[in-house]
Design a protein around this nucleic acid. Structure first.
Lengths: 222, 222
DNA sequence: GAATTCTAATACAGTTGTGTATCTGAATGC
DNA sequence: GCATTCAGATACACAACTGTATTAGAATTC
């Protein structure tokens, strides 16, 4: 009991979406699923995957365990679903960002955006941190997570390639490896930014990332 | 009546610490403590902090829960002890490395060493990843962990400062922030190196770190 | 060598969680 | 409007952990 942190997760009051429309079974079921996922994301981020019981998640979504088990095979099952959902979101906003801004040479701004966009909120960061840790231990899970990470890497690698081409600069290393390193860097910095905002406030985080990013791709010119 | 030495130490007699000497109470107790810590590190790395029961840890060390509770207040207590121990090790080897190699300008090799030294083994990496995650959720724990991280940062920052001075280069950013970023980068890269060794083998990890490190401090010259 | 002190084992009471099996009421279909 | 179906609630059987209280026996003291 020493170990369970009483975080007091407030009951999520879900704004009922106008029962004007009477939901079909399918719609209703889908709604339940979504609510369970949303609530689970919040609770897991707050207490951690292992410390979160099925009842916790269901409860915060306004349901009981019955509803949970009728929608998901297990806690892990839901967790993977959650990551997939988040991954799609990240991919989309990343893609969108990279598509939009590829032309500009304003690297600083680009990076800053990139950084803040990369994880919409802290919940998302924590979720992925949890996932990485889980992946270290579970080979099957690791494979699935790696697949997602590599997708993300490829988007970034493609961007890096295009960017360097456009700027008429040589790639300082393999685009794939650079992408991984940048992902790692961003995650790493994000953690410090999150855990010691006094030591590394948003501005400093963006600035240092910007410095390293510039140096890596522009050499000493920026 | 025959007397059996160390009758209470069950089947697992851990061979590596002077098995012959008759221990005083204090020594014996310290030995138990160390065994519990060592075993805990392994088990926690394998199954995760939350999923590891007190009995697990004690059992792997060859004791029962009684021994555990007579040596540690709680699982968290032990965990912090574990981190401190590891932190001291890291600090020492870091200090040593930096002291030794400060003169050379062979940055590549330096970095490679730095990287491989930074976490002696994977157990250590996992432990810190676990700690970071836990810190996000628990303010008190976060403070304690931050203190350790900042100590580490300062050692690295000092090195960076000295290094730039010696190389007669300007600091590309605040040494403290650079140090944090490098720590983040190394952790981030380490994860990919660990979870997808086929995509990012040791050599690639070292190489990409080296590239970024060089670029950051030397600009385009390296 | 008896009394004590201390480490660690053991027993126990209480809590929390899991997954399944069964039940209920609302949505659908005939 | 009656029967069916299915989402989700409830009940249950059981497994795991925690932390404390008690106990055994080795180490130390006198």
């Amino acid at each position: 009991m020493q170990f369970r942190i009483e975080m007091h997760v407030p009951e999520v009051v879900i704004p009922w979406r106008m029962p004007r429309k009477r939901l079909t079974r399918e719609e209703s079921r889908e709604q339940t699923r979504l609510r369970l996922l949303d609530a689970a994301a919040v609770v897991i981020a707050k207490k951690g995957l292992a410390a979160t019981s099925v009842e916790d998640m269901a409860g915060h979504a306004g349901y009981t365990r019955g509803a949970f088990y009728s929608n998901f095979k297990s806690k892990t099952d839901l967790f993977i679903e959650l990551l997939k959902r988040d991954h799609v979101d990240i991919q989309e906003s990343l893609q969108q960002l990279l598509d939009t801004d590829l032309s500009g040479e304003d690297l600083q701004r680009q990076l800053a955006l990139f950084y803040s966009q990369c994880y919409g909120d802290n919940t998302s960061y924590v979720l992925w941190a949890e996932a990485r840790l889980h992946a270290v231990r579970d080979a099957k899970f690791r494979q699935r997570l790696n697949a997602l990470c590599l997708e993300k890497r490829d988007v970034i690698a493609y961007f890096i390639t295009q960017f360097c081409k456009r700027m008429d600069m040589p790639l300082p290393a393999s685009a794939a490896d650079l992408a991984l390193a940048m992902m790692g860097l961003i995650d790493g910095v994000k953690y410090f930014n999150l855990s010691m905002p006094a030591e590394l406030p948003d501005s400093a985080a963006e600035s240092i990332l910007s410095t390293i990013f510039s140096a890596t791709f522009f050499g000493s010119r920026a």
